[in-house]
């Protein structure tokens, strides 16, 4: 596809614009044609939501930051545990045999269902936000990092050994750089999930955070704030994903070059 950067930007903006326009039209239809008296709660005008957001931005962003920062802390801890486990599994066959089946099964079970139970055990909202976000980050990171380690060709390892590199060197100079793309695949999966987990804990009975704003405004029927909070949390998810992509570009500069070459074929 011969799309320039500028083309892409234009196309995306047109899409975004037309969706907003469509939304405005639908909201107007709901309000004036169907005369649904719940119209402002079911589908408010986007510009109303924007006005509410501008008016309330300070409190919304504060609440969002509380949620996002705990999610980020849990994400970092879970990511580190996941990488550590992957290293242990790549070093010891027995550890891999023990842990790998459980990692696979963990992808099939609804882990977030545990959130209320963990919240009930820990009883501290910051702690349980971090624990659940870490827990949910851990699995995809460990699985992807291990498949990254496994994708390193034996010839490369043998070359390292032939120049008498020790284990630490092999990991630092060969295994880690080589499996970075895999690590980031795992992180990209995990980042929005960590934010989801953190918001879920908010809603289960915290005192602060964006999830609390969503629930309280819903109960008190202040739907303009409700929609502004929902949008804030949606942006938080998208932001977390984009932070990981940004970090990926920073840490794997060679990947971009490679993909450009493929595109130029």
């Amino acid at each position: 596809m011969e799309l320039t950067r500028r083309d892409r930007r234009v196309v995306t903006l047109v899409w975004l614009g037309s969706i907003i326009v469509l939304w405005e039209v639908l909201a107007a239809v709901l309000l004036f044609l169907i005369q649904d008296n719940m119209a402002s709660s079911k589908l408010p005008f986007p510009h109303d939501v924007l006005i509410t957001f501008v008016g309330e931005w300070r409190s919304l962003l504060t609440a969002g930051f509380v949620t996002l920062s705990r999610a980020g802390l849990g994400f970092a801890i879970g990511g580190m545990i996941g990488v550590t486990l992957a290293v242990v599994m790549s070093l010891s066959k027995i550890a891999e045999k023990i842990a790998f089946p459980y990692l696979i099964v963990s992808q099939m079970i609804p882990v977030l269902g545990l959130a209320p139970i963990i919240f009930n055990i820990v009883r501290d909202m910051n702690m349980s936000r971090i624990v659940i976000a870490a827990y949910i980050t851990f699995f995809p990171v460990a699985v992807n990092m291990l498949s990254g380690f496994k994708s390193v060709e034996d010839e490369k390892k043998e070359l390292m050994r032939s120049i008498a590199a020790n284990r630490v060197d092999i990991y630092l100079k060969l295994m880690f750089p080589y499996s970075l793309p895999y690590l980031f695949t795992g992180l990209k999966i995990a980042a929005p999930m960590a934010v989801t987990a953190s918001i879920l804990v908010d809603m289960l009975g915290s005192k602060s955070g964006i999830g609390v704003r969503i629930l309280y405004s819903l109960y008190s029927s202040s739907f303009d704030i409700f929609w502004a909070s929902v949008f804030t949390s949606a942006f938080m998810g998208i932001l977390s994903y984009n932070i990981v992509i940004f970090a990926e570009r920073l840490f794997i500069p060679w990947k971009n070059v490679a993909s450009k070459k493929v595109g130029a074929k």
Partner: peptide
């Protein structure tokens, strides 16, 4: 859309 939290 994929990155939007389910809870929201």
């Amino acid at each position: 859309l994929n990155a939007v939290p389910i809870v929201a």
